[in-house]
Design a protein around this nucleic acid. Sequence first.
DNA 1: GCAAAAGTGTTCCAGATACACCCATGT
DNA 2: ACATGGGTGTATCTGGAACACTTTTGC
Lengths: 222, 222
Amino acid sequence: MQYCYSYPHPAVTTDIVIFSIREQKLKLLLVKRAREPFADSWALPGGFVGIDEDLEACALRELEEETGVAGVYLEQLHTCGSPRRDPRERVISVAYYSLIPSDRLNVRSASDAKAVAWFTLDSLPTMAFDHAEIVSMAHQRLVAKLDYSTIAFQFMPEEFTLSELQTVYEIILGGPLDKRNFRKRVLALERIEKTGKLRRNGNHRPACLYRLKFPGKVEIIK
Amino acid sequence: MQYCYSYPHPAVTTDIVIFSIREQKLKLLLVKRAREPFADSWALPGGFVGIDEDLEACALRELEEETGVAGVYLEQLHTCGSPRRDPRERVISVAYYSLIPSDRLNVRSASDAKAVAWFTLDSLPTMAFDHAEIVSMAHQRLVAKLDYSTIAFQFMPEEFTLSELQTVYEIILGGPLDKRNFRKRVLALERIEKTGKLRRNGNHRPACLYRLKFPGKVEIIK
DNA sequence: GCAAAAGTGTTCCAGATACACCCATGT
DNA sequence: ACATGGGTGTATCTGGAACACTTTTGC
């Protein structure tokens, strides 16, 4: 079967930068390419957009195929279309990034026989295509959004403690935060509430558990 | 001549939201479509991406074709790819927005027989495709960027007065600003400098002229 | 000398920052 | 009783907001 046009058409893909907090580090998910080009290189999960498929739907589908998770935060990042970024044909890629709560551990190890692994940002392998650039943009955007949005909440499981939330901010920002100021600020947002439950975790006072008032909703603050 | 692929490919276009300050208003440039679909509707300037053409190069080309201006600020906004946004075939559009200095008046009235006109944001005509959404996103982005970047400087001609710059901010933000606070803030950025020249403009004290220290460069501030 | 825009500093307030101790639990 | 992380309030600092008069020119 052939699909013919009176002028040349590019192919269009989506690629997804999938962030999560794992083992107290900010990590992202890469897949090992099975086929040429860049066979055996690591790359962002992604794939071709179906001819009747919405761009975001495509990204969500790829996300679920690679990680087995659905219903997570997804945002469009940038569209890369340099004419020679793919040696096969002209490919324009719409990049998305996604934040996955730490408790969604059921990442399929190898959905369609591809190796899948989490990498920290400071130990990234050489990546296929222009994926290193995309990752860099996504990271910048994530860090910027911590400041002026509630995006970090998307890393949290359904119930979490304020200390856990603070740790997430500290991991992404790369430095310690003052506990009292952090709590004051985050509670003043009025976007989280106590569940009433406590978490007993070790030889110390149990922590109050919180939940998001508006799960899935990322708001601009300030 | 036919171009054939083993699976269906979408078409890709760029569309450009062209902002400028004209007659003390924030306006944007629209073109009247000559052909179907949406013949005689107003639409954003834009067109198909050449198979070997970079996305940004395509936007710049369209921009120059419609306005006759080159070397202006251009930024990628969003990629729209809803499957039914164009009735002809699947078209994915990479939207850009652009800021044009007020003195670049040489907008070609009708480059290729199309009507071209400037519209204020509160008197926009019904627009083709999803262009109204794109305009709305571009406007939001512009307003947001005023706050945390030096983007507004891109509306200025080579030489300008502080009052003119303040007027640009007031027009976009839609309200008056305090003159002393405005000057303090904008000079503290250290991105503009006196040319040494004065502008005599009426029955009053002449104003110092300023120029950008880094023309074309938009920086994040704060 | 009068009208009209250019230019210039200080006070005040709110939001961010710095900082230290008691609490509840497990061993 | 002690070790461990959980939880809380106040003083200070800093950047933004409010605000009014003098200067230079053209008529």
